[in-house]
Design a protein around this nucleic acid. Structure first.
Lengths: 333, 333
DNA sequence: CTGTTAGCGCGTTCAC
DNA sequence: GTGAACGCGCTAACAG
């Protein structure tokens, strides 16, 4: 920067002022400074700027797994919105590992990001606390924490989504519906399971006691394609009478579809399938997947917007948005 | 930090020394410092650290589009390798826009990243220069620049991949093969087109003159699903006699598949399809997609490893890795 | 309108 | 072994 000042024949303060368009600077000086900047291809050192201004124009995004197409969808919404406002994204993929998630929080604190978007896989509350402690605004995405009014949340009504799926299954005449669940500690997965249980009239069993009810056609999966296949195999082995499978997410559902097709079981004639998310793949497979749609991109942009708004005006109230999932009827059910 | 020093009853220098495990500090002092750190939940300010040490333990990753599953695959490889070494990732999605790419470079320079991984959509050379100018080590990923020995590159032999695809098409008896190309200025796309042209015996037409040869069954697409559909429609309109479609990437190929299926054209009986990338979706669609596999995850880890190695030892020579694509035969061809 | 100065939080080099 | 002083590149507040 002082090279620029020298070349332009002005002081450092002046350079800073024209670069930041703050304060008054004569036309002439401005010209000279811009000239020098261009010639020297000067780019301000953001680190030094952050050091004094206390903000870095960087947002942290923590996601469980961006090989699951659902998350890049969110990320893209975030990225776009952030870029519009001159913010950069630090993205961390935690691979569903609580350990990585915890580490991610430390990383973000250390990098002094301005705000964080968190798609928590578990323990969201503790992570939120650690971020808040460091005075970093957070917004929770896709999965929320109830009774937490201090921060903004953009989620989907997972429970209702599951209910809609089940209602559709019943409407189509499927009475023996099995469930491919998500990871145990993920709140969104649990809400979907809750919806399923309530729908089949087993409101009495708690989601975390599901393992103790082997009589129920519920198998633990983990949102992945591969585990979806395996879980389907297990489900059919333990509950051969199911006529419809409701999967906690599309990737699992696609795993189920893949397994059934390979086994020569006709979908939906022998067994129907309903997924959750509505990722692009859902439209591509054959038969195409009936699923519950989450407005992915919108969630990303909305969350980013809320966060940016909070950064712009720290007094702005946190907002809780619970978006509506919609049933997308295709061929598998 | 000075809170820690005070609480531990030592000077700032001592705290710094125990945190960085540099220099000698008495056992006793170390105890006290760690104690204080824990109680105060102190996290060092990475920005200030960067300012003096000149490195940020941050890597920049520039990708064209992470809603295309191919890229998250790369990203995950990078992320994993980076995390192992304590590095964080700044990820930028340029949406194939040259403008965004250029801006991304500025952003990275400004954030003073330690190194960059670049999946360039066009103009790679100029971006590399700008990064080098700022003394930021770069490694090019997936698409390379020839005659550039100054930096490491991890690519796939796109040309050979295309040749393999075409060889397979011919072996299966398809003689009228059409091509769904990628974006005009993307080098990998052009190499694949080059391979295609050579295979059909039109080595005489240059890839950038392709538009002037409407007699060839080549249609411009852009690597997206939707454009793949449209391009297929156009291809069949202008060249109704093609019996096989080779798409520059899987997403386009899936677009083609979707279009053909919707039109009631049997795949591969009426028209065969070959893709490029081997993303997960390729295995899921029906019929499943015959394609050319890029070793995505490995490319990501390898590229990250090369970059980290260069950061650890700046004198280490840049390496050029050209990986081998492999033909994966499934059902569409 | 502009040049100068004081920190931002930390690692590093010194004397102690 | 350890504390104090310096400076990284920049912005903000000040005196001119």
């Amino acid at each position: 920067m002082k090279d620029v000042a020298q070349k332009a024949g002005v002081g450092l303060g002046t350079v800073s002022r024209v670069l930041n368009k703050s304060g008054y600077v004569s036309e002439e000086a401005q010209q000279k400074v811009w000239e020098a900047v261009k010639q020297l291809r000067y780019v301000p050192n953001g680190v030094a700027q952050s050091m004094v201004t206390k903000h870095s124009y960087t947002l942290g995004v923590v996601l469980p797994d961006f090989t699951n197409p659902f998350f890049p969808g969110l990320a893209r919404g975030i990225e776009n919105e952030a870029r519009k406002h001159g913010y950069t994204i630090i993205m961390i993929d935690t691979d569903w590992q609580e350990h990585n998630e915890s580490q991610a929080i430390d990383t973000l604190r250390q990098r002094s990001i301005d705000g964080a978007l968190l798609v928590a896989s578990a323990n969201a509350l503790s992570f939120v606390h650690r971020l808040c402690e460091a005075k970093i605004p957070v917004v929770l995405l896709d999965r929320g924490v109830e009774d937490l009014d201090a921060i903004s949340q953009v989620t989907v009504d997972h429970y209702k989504g599951a209910c809609k799926a089940m209602a559709w299954a019943y409407e189509k005449g499927y009475t023996r519906v099995g469930f491919l669940s998500g990871p145990a500690k993920v709140s969104s997965a649990n809400l979907r399971l809750r919806g399923y249980l309530d729908a089949i009239g087993r409101g009495d069993v708690a989601v975390d006691e599901i393992e103790q009810h082997p009589e129920l056609p519920v198998v633990r999966a983990d949102f992945s394609f591969e585990k979806g296949r395996q879980a389907t195999e297990e489900l059919l082995r333990t509950h051969p009478d199911v006529t419809c499978i409701f999967a906690a997410n599309d990737l699992s559902a696609l795993g189920a579809l893949s397994y059934l097709t390979a086994r020569g079981i006709a979908v939906p004639d022998d067994i129907a399938i309903i997924g959750f998310d509505d990722i692009l793949m859902a439209t591509l497979v054959h038969p195409s997947l009936t699923t519950i749609r989450q407005p992915t991109y919108e969630m990303g942009t909305l969350a980013a917007r809320l966060l940016l708004q909070q950064l712009a005006d720290p007094r702005s109230k946190p907002e809780k948005h619970i978006l509506e999932p919609t049933l997308i009827v295709r061929q598998t059910c």
